[in-house]
């Protein structure tokens, strides 16, 4: 009886299956230790004249992540997004209380120029808004207002930005045609190229795919994944599947009704990693919203 046992003892170890051999790279990326803090909002409330649109929002946005803002209509997610690049300044009567820090510097301190803020923090809007100029001039617009006049340099920037927006191959032979002649998906990619041309640090997107068909939406989502490593992206979306497909972190906003004064205001309900928000939301309101039982 000895020998069979010995045979078993000296048998070499089975090779480890390939699936277990190296650590999966995506697993490391999904860890909960974020990179640098890009935005830090503290107790931000936003008023339009005397109406308090958003109350007491505090959250941090991290570098090279895609953060999604979700929530029902009228909950202030676009308003909060616009505080990140001072676009609310354009609305008469808009006022921000609390503070927003961008990489350590306050965005709302006296003396801060909204122009220089917006050069570093770009924005793509819900409805594509290409300028009534040629495609080339649309993309070159940003660099031109930043002082770049050299034609060769501009050509380079235009090509790079259009490639970055996955639009180059479709328009390279008609750069001098009007930007208004593009389809919805192409126009939105043109707007993204235009935003990327000034090489911002952050790209804010306000429901960028809501006016687009599924194929164009897919192209833009691919684009977001591709450029994530070079930019920080914050996206407002009312499409929850998009939030789950695209974002690393999700913030859920909702409307708070004050029964006594019958006023409504937007509040941040829950903020966390996307898998956690959609798998196991902590707040009942978040759960009601993501499972479609709200309202």
């Amino acid at each position: 009886m000895e020998q069979p046992e010995q045979k078993i003892a000296t048998q070499t170890e089975l090779p480890k299956p390939a699936a277990l051999q190296e650590p999966r790279p995506s697993a490391a990326a999904v860890s909960d230790t974020p990179g640098a803090t890009v935005f830090d909002s503290k107790n931000v409330s936003i008023y339009y004249s005397s109406f308090r649109a958003v109350t007491d929002v505090s959250l941090s946005i991290y570098e090279n992540e895609i953060t999604a803002f979700i929530g029902p209509s009228g909950c202030g997610k676009t308003t909060v997004l616009r505080t990140l690049n001072r676009m609310n300044d354009l609305i008469p009567g808009a006022r921000v209380e609390g503070d927003v820090h961008y990489r350590g510097e306050s965005l709302y301190a006296t003396g801060v120029s909204p122009i220089s803020v917006r050069r570093r923090i770009g924005m793509v809007f819900q409805k594509p808004n290409p300028f009534p100029k040629s495609i080339y001039d649309n993309v070159a617009y940003g660099p031109r207002i930043n002082g770049i006049r050299n034609k060769g340099k501009l050509d380079e920037i235009v090509e790079k930005s259009l490639r970055g927006a996955a639009l180059w191959d479709e328009v390279k032979n008609r750069l001098n045609k009007s930007g208004l002649g593009l389809s919805g998906g192409q126009a939105q990619r043109l707007c993204i190229a235009r935003t990327l041309a000034v090489e911002p640090d952050v790209v804010l997107m306000d429901e960028p795919c809501s006016a687009l068909d599924p194929i164009a939406t897919g192209a833009i989502e691919d684009l977001m994944h591709e450029i994530k490593s070079r930019y920080t992206i914050v996206i407002v979306t009312h499409n929850m599947q998009q939030a789950t497909r695209v974002s690393d972190r999700t913030a859920f906003y909702s409307v708070l009704r004050d029964e006594k004064s019958d006023t409504r205001t937007g509040v941040l309900v829950e903020y966390g990693r996307t898998e956690q928000i959609f798998n196991d939301p902590q707040d009942e309101r978040t759960k009601a919203y993501v499972t479609g039982r709200m309202g």
């Binding site: 808004n129 707007c191 935003t195």
Partner: peptide
Amino acid sequence: VPNSLREGSYALGAT
């Protein structure tokens, strides 16, 4: 002139 054009320009850092 639609306001979206103005916003698009402001968002690129124009005065």
